[in-house]
Design a protein around this nucleic acid. Sequence first.
DNA 1: TATTGTTATACTCTATAACTATA
DNA 2: TATAGTTATAGAGTATAACAATA
Lengths: 170, 170
Amino acid sequence: MAGQAQYEELVRQLSAVGAVRRDLARIMPPDCPAGSGAVLTILDVHGDMRMSKLAEHLAVDLSVTSRQVAHLVARGWIERLPDPVDKRSRILHLTPAGLDRLDDLFRRTTQLLAERLSDWSDDEVGQLIHLMSRLRESFGDCRPHPGRVHAPADAPVIEETTRTPANAHT
Amino acid sequence: MAGQAQYEELVRQLSAVGAVRRDLARIMPPDCPAGSGAVLTILDVHGDMRMSKLAEHLAVDLSVTSRQVAHLVARGWIERLPDPVDKRSRILHLTPAGLDRLDDLFRRTTQLLAERLSDWSDDEVGQLIHLMSRLRESFGDCRPHPGRVHAPADAPVIEETTRTPANAHT
DNA sequence: TATTGTTATACTCTATAACTATA
DNA sequence: TATAGTTATAGAGTATAACAATA
């Protein structure tokens, strides 16, 4: 059990690591952005699965997964096969072209990481992987669900800007 | 220097940790979303600074920072003070109301983390913080800049969907 | 001319809600 | 009625480019 100061610092670091994610995303090809790579990776690691299972892995809503999958199907990187035991379901399958694409993605990210982490030891990288993996596990199934309630907003606010009147040139 | 397999796994874990970030973002009040907290935090930790410095801390484009700051100024959580030595510049200052807001945010995230990480030792949390901080440092100033080039896109693709013709009901 | 910041625009990611098809 | 998946819509995050003011 850690102290409040540690938790605050952890939140700061989670936010800061976002910059690393963005840097990695920037070297992706434009037709295969951020989330697409994640989908391909999961299918590569865990094999064929249905939409709902994929959404669980990604920890996002099924509607998000549906869009991402449509994008990948349109490019021929994955297929949606019928499920013999449930006609509502669709089995997702990584195609050879998708595997090629994935190899390309890994080549890009590996190269960038090799540059940036040239002074990291094998063991240090392993520890970071281990701890991040454990962090993810500790949060379990953290997809959105209706149970959670947000705090009410404060009084309404006028979005003002200091220098330029909002409607000076309309 | 780590191997390719480790780098691939690191990318996967960076992606997976996104679920944790989203879970934390979900408990934020609606009028103080994701990035707003990050801005308040940085001003709290590092004190007053100008826009460009803040953008550097956040590792985002100045235009992004400008929008986020305008949001926070509209709510009275930060102020834009004139810079006595450079009239182009504006010094950002956290207000007492902003500090109150920040306390509220920390209370929320700390509570969630205390629940999720109840079986983590103080030392383990410390190690994760240390390694993530080091990861961020290894990437240095990784803001977008024109030097980087993306790979050209493949042949154009028709975004098709399997079940519903795209324009069946327009 | 270069720098600081703002704004317009566009695209990705994510969520909620309404809908269709099947169980 | 409940579940699997799709689509429409909306909001946050981020980037590029055009712009204004100052150095």
